[in-house]
Amino acid sequence: EPEARKIVEKLINNGLSPEDVKRWAEKNNNPEVKKAAEEYQKR
Rank of each mutant, 00 (worst) to 15 (best):
E1A: 13
E1C: 14
E1H: 12
E1P: 13
P2Y: 15
P2I: 15
P2H: 15
E3C: 12
E3T: 12
E3S: 13
A4K: 02
A4H: 05
R5M: 15
R5D: 09
K6E: 11
I7K: 03
V8W: 05
V8R: 00
V8I: 07
E9P: 00
E9Y: 03
K10F: 14
K10I: 14
L11F: 09
L11G: 02
I12S: 01
I12A: 01
I12T: 02
N13V: 07
N14E: 15
N14P: 00
N14C: 14
G15N: 03
G15E: 06
L16H: 06
P18R: 02
P18K: 04
P18F: 14
E19Y: 00
E19C: 08
E19R: 05
D20F: 05
D20P: 00
D20R: 02
V21Q: 01
V21D: 03
V21E: 03
K22L: 15
K22S: 06
K22M: 15
K22G: 07
K22C: 11
R23K: 11
R23L: 11
R23A: 10
R23F: 07
W24D: 04
W24N: 04
W24I: 06
W24R: 03
W24C: 06
A25Q: 01
A25M: 01
A25T: 00
A25K: 00
A25D: 02
E26K: 00
E26L: 00
E26T: 02
K27R: 09
K27E: 15
K27Q: 14
N28R: 04
N28E: 10
N28V: 11
N29T: 04
N29Q: 08
N30W: 15
N30M: 15
P31D: 11
P31L: 11
E32P: 06
E32W: 06
E32L: 12
E32K: 08
E32V: 08
V33C: 03
V33M: 06
K34H: 12
K34P: 01
K34L: 14
K34M: 14
K34C: 09
K35P: 00
K35Q: 10
K35Y: 06
A36G: 02
A36I: 14
A36D: 02
A37E: 03
A37M: 11
E38L: 07
E38W: 01
E39L: 03
E39A: 07
Y40W: 12
Y40L: 09
Q41I: 15
Q41H: 07
Q41P: 06
K42P: 09
K42T: 10
R43M: 14
R43L: 15
R43T: 13
